[in-house]
Write a protein that binds this DNA or RNA. Structure first.
Lengths: 356, 356
DNA sequence: CTGAAAGCGCTTACAG
DNA sequence: CTGAAAGCGCTTACAG
């Protein structure tokens, strides 16, 4: 079986095996046998042969052939590293869905298809169709590692691309401010914390690098002291909790922590509570608000600023503008946000503040 | 501009507008102008014309033409309601990624593409290609409403499909046990709770219906008493918190709650704490463990059983088996799980129990 | 350096 | 009831 090249069965091979023409085969396969008045015997033979040979239609050929629909079709890819939490990706998918609904309401001629491509951290280059543009018409790329960023810088992608929370020369992008970390430092210091630590996981991405650095710089500038670095092996909550525990067991004097991602913050919360300490009485915790959902935390997590949802929407809007070749004020967007002083820092309960 | 049917520009139209052949246009558009030794003037003209006309390549045609790759390509769709939390979808996507990696390692000839299709609750029928099979080769469908389930029952989809947590005659599916709710009832009653409530959101899906019903039946069977129903307007955490508040303000005697989804449980936690009550001292909470991530909760959430990840993996494995026409023991899988007695029920702290 | 042509796999009029 | 043929948009040998 097979066509000699890949083993994939085609309608032509079914037709040959069944002693029919491809037109009849196709009609049966599309359940058009009634209107085409195909004989029951032929229908049965086609179905049996297709099943026996393990026929799987070529979607690209089908869509190409189905005229108008095919012409309208635009494929958007969301490309993310497999290791990263899917929270940000969820925001992007929801933002796409929203934008696509808008397009339809405004009479856009396009029919959008959304695909998800995940790559192993550092292996962005392996995403099918990335260089050739043969798999999608436009892409949002996020959660890349420095190696991936470097790869992007060397190549040029032949379709509209928007990076989220990554800045690479030549690519439109939507990023948070690079001094988010310094705001975390400010609010911790302003609330009387003096022995500060930063909790982050590996690998350190571009955005976490900025968070960490601006935090450390600002702490030094405000207090003249250095920051203890607590480094988790991976980006998971579990390793964050483990790293925290090791640190707190060795040095109980830390009174304020900046957890550079909300995943890290969950680990920190878990560990601090398990060790019988109080947030913020013993240790204040400030996060980055990247999950966009403070109600997950008890006490509600103070953040250096929350803009994940806004960032996702900006990125999608920018991509749509690029696709439609609309006038664009800037292709380098920085989302703004202000620190959220919640109970994990202030100790003051704010009723019903957990939902945004 | 346009081809007169949909307005979509093709290489042919670029060629006409630029006074060239489509071969030259295609070569430039694919950055093959160096090896094809196209003159710089032609390159510039093609690029200018393509940009001016707003050319967007037809991905289906591209993939079809790119021979071998196209032949191998299999498109998997994850189809979910827009309203549902994306947590379960995340598990499915991760499970697909895992399965696809395995396929590759085992020398599968297929190259998989994953698409996400979201529909408004009740409007599954509007998913492009759902009936014709023109958009994907196989699908996992989840988070459907009863209306969607009814629609599925009336039609027949011409490709392999696996439903997750929905049972519709004629479709392979992977579901949790239908008596999960009774286990929640058992552990609450076993821990001395007598005034029980169930918290759920709308719309009530097939699986939540079973959770609610088996909970209420079992409570009646164990205690002879009825269950107070707390109904949130939607499936969001916020409306869950609001519904909880209204209920607790009216009747402070409830001492045990079954939150049928983890989203509902987050809302319940938030409300209970905001009202100054203790979990479980005043109110015990039991969830369904559908987020698959108890570390999100403080105190750790007791559940009637956790199997979201396992369910996602079973569903993907079943779909892969259907695609490959492997021998299948059963197409109706029920995932098993046992209740997790955590602090939100027992009040007993179990160190480092939050991560699974 | 460029043009004319074949053909990817499929569906659908159309002719019998 | 069935067969032969056109053609979706694209890429890529091939001939000049």
């Amino acid at each position: 079986m097979g066509n000699g090249k890949t083993g994939r069965i085609t309608v032509r091979q079914i037709a040959e095996a069944a002693g029919l023409t491809i037109g009849s085969v196709s009609s049966v396969l599309n359940n058009k046998h009634v209107e085409r008045r195909i004989s029951p015997a032929t229908v049965a033979k086609v179905r049996e042969t297709a099943a026996r040979l393990g026929y799987m239609p070529n979607i690209n050929a089908r869509r190409l052939r189905s005229g108008a629909e095919s012409l309208n079709s635009v494929t958007l890819a969301v490309i993310t590293s497999f290791e990263a939490p899917l929270t940000l990706v969820n925001h992007i998918i929801k933002a796409i869905r929203k934008a696509v609904d808008n397009e339809r309401k405004n009479g856009s001629p396009y029919q959008f298809t959304v695909t998800i491509d995940m790559f192993n951290a550092g292996d962005l280059a392996s995403v099918p169709g990335l260089l050739s543009g043969s798999h999608f018409n436009a892409a949002i790329i996020t959660n890349t590692t420095p190696k991936d960023d470097h790869f992007l810088q060397r190549v040029q992608l032949p379709y509209p691309v928007v990076l989220v929370n990554r800045s690479v020369p030549g690519y439109p992008h939507v990023c948070e401010a690079t001094d988010i970390g310094s705001r975390a430092a400010d609010i911790l210091v302003d609330h009387g914390r003096r022995k500060l630590a930063v909790l982050y996981g590996q690998p350190v991405t571009q955005v976490t690098h900025h968070r960490i650095n601006s935090f450390m710089r600002q702490v030094y500038s405000r207090l003249g002291s250095t920051v203890q670095e607590i480094v988790a092996d991976t980006l998971t909550e579990r390793t964050a909790a483990n790293a925290m525990r090791k640190c707190l067991e060795a040095d109980a004097h830390i009174d304020g922590i900046y957890a550079v991602t909300d995943g890290m913050a969950i680990g920190a919360y878990h560990c601090i509570k398990q060790m019988g300490m109080q947030i913020p009485a013993n240790v204040a915790v400030v996060g980055s608000g990247d999950y966009g959902f403070p109600a997950l935390f008890d006490p509600p997590l103070a953040t250096a600023g929350e803009d994940s949802i806004q960032r996702a929407e900006s990125a999608v809007n920018l991509l749509m503008a690029l696709i439609h070749q609309r006038e664009i004020a800037t292709t380098e967007i920085v989302t703004e946000s202000t620190p959220q002083l919640r109970e994990s820092l202030t100790g003051t309960r704010q009723p019903w503040s957990g939902f945004n």
